[in-house]
């Protein structure tokens, strides 16, 4: 049957066509196509790898950012607490120092008052003694107005010295 016996003409042209087709594609089509397909596959692989690593990095970054935020919060809280502490301490200190200062001022005032008292006393005493002397002088002047009383006193004093 004709169907099962290969026709020479067709075999011949088939060889020619296939050879021509193969040569054309081999020379002009396959190198460009396969190169691009392969390099694009590589590109996609790389892209996927890159995306994965980027995602990983992003996750890491997110994690570390969270850590940083937490740390910041912690520090903030600590700082607030510290500030609070410092504030109270400062108030306390200020109060204490004000108290001390007030004490000092009071002490000084006391001391001054005492000194002034002493001075006043001293002055008072000097004045009193001055007055007393003046009075005594006046009294003595009145009593020893005459020569005899004077001589008697000198003698009495001399006697005292002698007996010593």
């Amino acid at each position: 049957m004709e169907l099962f016996t290969p026709d020479f003409g067709l075999v011949f042209w088939m060889f020619v066509s296939f050879a021509v087709l193969f040569l054309i594609l081999w020379k002009f089509a396959w190198p460009a196509i396969l190169k691009t397909v392969n390099s694009r596959a590589d590109l996609i692989d790389k892209g996927v790898e890159y995306a994965q690593s980027a995602k990983e990095q992003l996750d890491n970054a997110r994690l570390s950012a969270q850590e940083v935020i937490n740390e910041a919060r912690r520090q903030q809280a600590e700082m607030m607490r510290e500030a609070d502490r410092i504030k109270t301490q400062m108030i306390e200190d200020a109060r204490q120092s004000a108290q001390a200062e007030a004490q000092k001022v009071m002490d000084n005032a006391k001391l001054q008052i005492q000194q002034q008292q002493k001075e006043a006393q001293l002055q008072f005493r000097n004045q009193v003694s001055d007055f007393a002397l003046q009075i005594a002088t006046k009294v003595v002047k009145n009593q020893l107005g005459d020569q005899k009383a004077q001589a008697k006193l000198v003698n009495a004093i001399l006697d005292d010295i002698d007996t010593k």
Binding site: T5, P6, D7, L10, V11, F18
Partner: peptide, 9 residues
């Protein structure tokens, strides 16, 4: 569906 063609291939 022609045996000449498939045979060459």
């Amino acid at each position: 569906g022609n045996i000449a063609v498939t045979m060459v291939l």
